[in-house]
Structure formats: structure tokens, C-alpha cells
Design a protein around this nucleic acid. Sequence first.
DNA 1: TTCATTTATTCACAAATGTGAATGTCTCGG
DNA 2: CCGAGACATTCACATTTGTGAATAAATGAA
Lengths: 185, 185
Amino acid sequence: MLETYLQDHFKLSKEDVDQIAQFFIRTELKKGGYFLQAGQVCRKVAYLEKGAIFYYEEIEGEVKVCDFAFEGDWLTQYKSMLGKIPSLLSIRTLEDSIVYELALEKMEALIKAIPGAGIIRSTLAEKYFTESADRAASLANLKAEERYHKLLEEKPQIMNRVPQYYVASYLGIKPQSLSRIRAAR
Amino acid sequence: MLETYLQDHFKLSKEDVDQIAQFFIRTELKKGGYFLQAGQVCRKVAYLEKGAIFYYEEIEGEVKVCDFAFEGDWLTQYKSMLGKIPSLLSIRTLEDSIVYELALEKMEALIKAIPGAGIIRSTLAEKYFTESADRAASLANLKAEERYHKLLEEKPQIMNRVPQYYVASYLGIKPQSLSRIRAAR
DNA sequence: TTCATTTATTCACAAATGTGAATGTCTCGG
DNA sequence: CCGAGACATTCACATTTGTGAATAAATGAA
């Protein structure tokens, strides 16, 4: 529930939460549907109420996965939104999903109108920056098997909800290598 | 020159630039000096006027380099500054350097006072997010030799100004492997 | 259900990177 | 200028990961 989430995570008053929640639009996405297609400028952020999402870039026909999201996560393509430039990434569902979308202009208006609402934006910035820095650090400093186990701890649902070859791509290895790692014990 | 930089990159009026520049403090750092030490909360951003800088984390006695900066780059530890939490990273010079520091409160005051000044903050956010996302993508999708050549294109001065074992660490490989890659042609 | 397609596993071998040690080179303080 | 310590290179060998192919298992549409 969006309101519950906002109240629990952002310490906003009931009135603020209700007012803020009005600007979000509930959207259902079928499995395989797009939250954002490569080439579009991202003009929204969203709360993922239900479902599973992956971010990827297609390079020379290869799908390169760079992030996943599940219930309770936020969605946006920060770089595209910030720079108002077409996204190189696509953001797509892995399951039927429900998102609450907040248009960029509305977020900006909200932040001006309601002092506490700025935390939504900084939460997104922190999330995105932290995650990609962490992923880079893992890729640079851990071997594939360690990255896999770290990912299992951070996102325990992952092997149940994501095709294994997407997980392999995210880990920076080939599907066969992930199979091998999983087979060892 | 800080003023020149602000004017050229941020399209601010001469008056705004002069006013903004007043809040920066010029600081000289000796080779090996710290801009930020692990454990400190980062409460500043800075423009690197001259010199060379590296960001690293020390894990089990190992130095893990995660970024470099040279003249014209901006410095801060975004995660620590945003979350007001102690930094895991240290930021340190590789040469005698000159930075212009802007305290966080002053940046916030500036942004309120001068409409155009917000671009400083969003430039920093974009820089940091984009760089770590790019580094992650390189580490996941390219092999060491390709990462090395990409780095050479992006930061041509790097091999002249940074000890090679730090470059290796940044690339996610061992110094011997970087030697081998360089020896091949 | 059935069957075609997609996804996962396994294998043998190739290629990339790590490891430890020996050696060579550079740098900077005395 | 010298010499010690830091840094870079090279080598032989170990380990990790990639590759291509064969097979098995899972999935989803009719």
C-alpha cells in the first residue's frame, strides 16, 4: 500500500501522505510490459506495489541486465530523468505488476508545496547511487561465486522470480558459469 | 580558475558567479593528503583546481580504488553527505593539489538564495551516479583489456599520474595482469 | 494434455586472470 | 651520489570463467 509505505518510511503526517498520494497514478503492467523503453526520456518515478522488474541495456543484440526491483522498491531512470535525455536502458516487468507512478512535474510541485516531500527525491538519489556503486565494488573486488552469494542475501527471492540467465548477466558472467557455481554444493 | 569554470559550465551571470565563488574556500593539499578520511561524515563538495585525487576503500588491509579525479572535476562523497553517515571511503591526493571547498550548509543556502545555483548540486549528482553506473557496466560487460583501453580514452593522463597498481585496482584486476595487458602491443 | 520453444545443465576444452616468486627499475631522502 | 623501499615486469603454474555443443528440464500456447 502506497500510503502505508510513505508513512512508515518518510515520517510524514497523515495529511501530507494523503495529499501526496493523490498525485500518484495506479498502473497495471502485464508480464513483459515496459515501464520505460530505451529511447524515451524518463519523466516519472514510481513505487512498485507488486511484481518484479528488470533494467537492461541491449548492446549488439545482447541483453545486459543492470538492476532488479521488487515490491517496495522505487523505479526510475535517474540519468535520463535528470539530464532530460533519451534512456539507453529499458525497464520491464518479469511478472504482472502494479506501480504507482508520479510524474516528474508533479514531484517537483509536491516538493515545493510540501516541505517533507523532498525526501522522496533524495531517497531515490541515494538508492540509485548506492546500488550502482555497490554493484561496481562487487564486480571489481569479488569473484563470481561471492557476488552470487551476496546477491542471494540481498535479494533472496531472486532465483525464484528471475530467469537465471538474467541473473547471470547482472552478475557479469555467462549462464553456464552460474549453473556451475550453483552446482558446486 | 573557479569563476571561469562556473561561468563556462553553468551559464550563470557574472554577478551570480562572483557571489557564489565567495563561499568557496581555497585549500592546498600536499601529496598524500586527505580530502576526506574514512569515518568522517562528508559535509562539503569541492572543485579540483589542480592536482590528482583517488577515492578508495580499505578492506582487510587492501586498498580498493573506486574513482579518480583530476583538474576540473568535482569532489565529494555523495553517499556520506546525503545520508549524513560516516564515509567508508577515503579521498586522497596523488599530487600536491588545490581545491575550492564549499561547505554543505553554504551550498544549501546558496541554492535557496540564487536560483541558478541548484545546478551545482544536480551536476554532482549526475556525475556521481553516471560514473558508478558506467564503471559497473564496464566491469560486468567488458574484459580487463577493454576496460583498460576505455579508461585510457576517458582519462588519457591516467598512466602518467597514477601508480599503476591503483589503476589495476580500479579496473578490478591485479597489478601483474595490468602489466601483462600493457605488454601485449 | 501435447508439443514447440525457451531455459538450464553438463561437459571438454580454450582463454583470461590470479598467484607467488624472481628480477628489474624507479624514486626520494640522506 | 647512494641505497633502501616502493613499484613494475616477467615467468611458470593454478584457478576462474568463457565457449560451443549436446542434452535435459521447464514453460506456455493451442
